[in-house]
Design a protein around this nucleic acid. Structure first.
Lengths: 106, 106
DNA sequence: CGTGTAAGGAATTCTGACACG
DNA sequence: CGTGTAAGGAATTCTGACACG
């Protein structure tokens, strides 16, 4: 199965510092939007937040809505409208292949 | 301009620990392949390596070739065959928009 | 050649809180 | 409400080196 690019978009692998650079938002803001239930990063085993490119797009959208004077409560409702579709259609499979190979090697 | 998914694939935003988890390779191996000129991560301002999803695919490929008993020197040649095409066709533009908005807001 | 590891330091991220408003 | 900051601690990453082979 060919690797469809859509696989990357929802893979949570970016740390908060990088997200901050990419979006222009402060880490404080990014964490706050999470507490407001606008974004849902995953956590590494040790608790570090991990974001996807999709999250970054959502964050930019959130920043734009806030500029318009919209409250996070309202933004949450707006965001709920757009269902986040199928995640991970293929990429993990490829990764597993790579890891299996690595294992078998041992 | 709509955001083409290809934009994500070449964006260097993943740190080495995450790459290690995703590929099953040790950080030592990943850094070594860089010293062998097989992969070319970018660096954050403070020197931390950042990889793209494309790099991850390449790493899995490298691991597979090594299992076949191929030397890094040879793998480098093989990799050179496949030109890494256009990077960043659009994503950065969108990010800049978000950041500009953020700036203007101030 | 390719990879593991201990070593010391630098950079990152986390949480809870005080602050302003 | 949304965001800044200082505080202390925990987790991550970096480089150069010794080791095996």
């Amino acid at each position: 199965m060919p690797l469809t690019d859509g696989s990357f978009k929802n893979k949570k692998v970016i740390s908060i510092g990088t997200v901050s650079e990419l979006t222009g938002l402060s880490e404080r803001q990014i964490r706050y939007y999470e507490s407001r239930k606008l974004i849902f990063p995953e956590r590494s085993k040790t608790g570090l937040r991990k974001y996807s490119f999709q999250d970054i797009e959502t964050l930019i959208e959130i920043a734009n809505r806030l500029e318009d004077g919209v409250w996070t409560n309202e933004i949450r409702k707006e965001l709920k409208g757009r269902k986040q579709l199928a995640k991970d259609p293929g990429f993990t499979n490829q990764l597993i292949k790579g890891q299996l190979n690595a294992q078998i090697k041992m």
